[in-house]
Amino acid sequence: MKKILLRIMIVALLLGTAYATSPIKIDAFSSRDIARGATGDDVIELQARLQYAGFYNGKIDGKFGYGTYWALRNFQDKYGLPIDGIAGSQTKKKLTSASKYDQKFVMDNLKKGNQFTHYGGTPLSAQVKKGGGGRENMNLPSKYSQQDLNLMANAVYGEARGEPYEGQVAVAAVILNRVEHPDFPDTISGVIFQPLAFTAVADGQIWLTPNERAKEAVLDALNGWDPSENSIYYFNPITATSKWIWSRPQVKKIGLHIFCH
């Protein structure tokens, strides 16, 4: 009898320990810790909940930047949580109990590109303004904007959509190399729209809608990759008509393009 009782107690103790040390189940968010630099649906939920609880008054855009970071730290401070600016399981649990999240409202407005807020205590319908909003798709180095990415993706798609991925990154890198080079305009739009600089601008192909691959290639270039090896020109030897371009020192060939200095 004593042995059975002892066994029951051990099993109960083990179960209790397992329960106490198991990860906290939260009825929202994904299971990952959310930290600065993250993007995605759980960042949207984090921002919406922080806003509901009155800690965040920035844009709900799915990008975990400094605005979200300070708001989260303030929330952790107020609720006696470890202040690290990371939404771990404990913070998420507290946030879930201290706020509400109307996922449909938030996602619908993001999809429609509306400007909206998600404050608690005010009817949500009164917190929407049409247009001017939307979700940030890419997380860029701070010196570049979404507009830079879009314009470059248009140029890359117009100029090099049939090229290998490396070639597309290289075309994007050439644009950035020109921005840094003393012989060219010092803005991305200035470089792209410089007369006679890019064929895709001259023939209007720059206004084709770029695909995800072109955007990804631009993103890699904005993050520092340069398969062109510091080139500032490129040309297609089959179609090039300028004699001058052949006089440039050539660096490498990628797909159909020769990259040069």
Binding site: R248, P249, V251, K252
Partner: peptide, 16 residues
Amino acid sequence: VDRSKPGSPYPFYHIR
């Protein structure tokens, strides 16, 4: 594997 073209200021191997 290609060697960079002669105009490259620093020679390199381009491996695909």
